[in-house]
Design a protein around this nucleic acid. Structure first.
Length: 275
DNA sequence: GATACTTCCTGAGAGC
DNA sequence: TGCTCTCAGGAAGTAT
């Protein structure tokens, strides 16, 4: 499932491949529930003849800036994919929306489980979304002190707190598990119980892991859902220390990696080194 | 305001 | 082989 490094990979691809191109048509298959607003007809009308000026990332959202001063905001959730294909090539499975572009290209949105969302927002609506989304962990201005403030008074488990997009944006299940392992923090601990030293290490680990994952173009986990805009897998999976490695030896000690359920999410950690 | 629970959705895999 | 059941999970909406 796409988190910050995967979304960043796709955003960078889109910036290279589709920025500067003009939307010639929008093909909407089935009842594409992914399109939240506006209506199908208006959605299509508002997109045709517009230029994609640039691609940006906001947490786990991909924001395409259009020449109409509107923004195509896409969230892939769990199984959404954005693929850049040549026109009239073999159709992709689970295709929901195809954006037909100049230079004989198509930007295809596919989604097996259908949780993804596509919205066309104006500036005011985008600002509202930006205000709702927490700071980006890779933003230079995001310090350990900021994280500490955000974790203060939070009674929820640190793992669940990290997944809250209003606290830190872009972190999902894979990287929350990995960062907590690197920081030697038990995912069940209350967020507010972390010491300054814990938070500093967590902050550092988070940045380091996310950067490395971007370098390897993200993680394609066991479910194999994540691929880049060419359909290629991410290569960070082999660097994962705990995620989906229950029963395996901890790379730091002789303990075994355990899987528990926290807030309905699979949580992976080493009970002997994460305290 | 913070937290917990429910819902959305469908493919994959287990069990029979 | 084919059916049913369970699980996976991000985030919005609702309840506490």
């Amino acid at each position: 499932m796409p988190e910050l490094p995967e979304v960043e990979t796709i955003k960078n691809d889109l910036q290279k491949k589709v920025a500067g191109l003009i939307l010639q048509d929008v093909l909407i298959t089935k009842k594409a529930k992914q399109i939240r607003k506006p209506s199908f007809r208006r959605f299509k009308e508002e997109l045709i003849s517009r230029k994609i000026k640039k691609a940006e990332r906001l947490g786990k959202f991909i924001v395409l800036h259009l020449s109409s001063r509107k923004f195509l905001v896409i969230h892939l959730r769990m199984t959404g994919r954005l693929l850049v294909r040549k026109r009239n090539t073999k159709p992709d499975d689970y295709l929901k929306v195809a954006f037909v572009l100049t230079k004989n290209k198509e930007l295809r949105f596919t989604d097996a489980r259908g949780f993804g969302t596509i919205e066309l927002l104006n500036k005011k609506e985008l600002t509202k979304l930006q205000e709702k989304v927490g700071p980006d962990p890779l933003d230079k201005s995001f310090t350990a002190g900021d994280l500490e403030k955000r974790l203060q008074r939070r009674k929820r488990a640190i793992k669940l707190t990290l997944l809250d997009q209003s606290i830190v944006s872009g972190v999902g299940n894979i990287y929350a598990n990995e960062a907590l392992f690197a920081a030697k923090v038990n995912p069940r601990r209350k967020a507010s119980s972390l010491s300054g030293k814990n938070v500093k290490l967590l902050h550092e680990s988070l940045k380091k892991i996310l950067k490395k994952a971007i370098k390897f173009r993200g993680t394609t986990a066991k479910d194999e859902y994540f691929v880049d805009t060419e359909g290629k897998k991410g290569r960070f999976k082999s660097y994962l220390k705990v995620y989906q490695r229950q029963g395996e030896k901890c790379p730091n000690c002789k303990g075994k990696i355990k899987r528990i359920n926290l807030g309905g999410r699979g949580t992976f950690f080493c009970p002997s080194c994460q305290k």
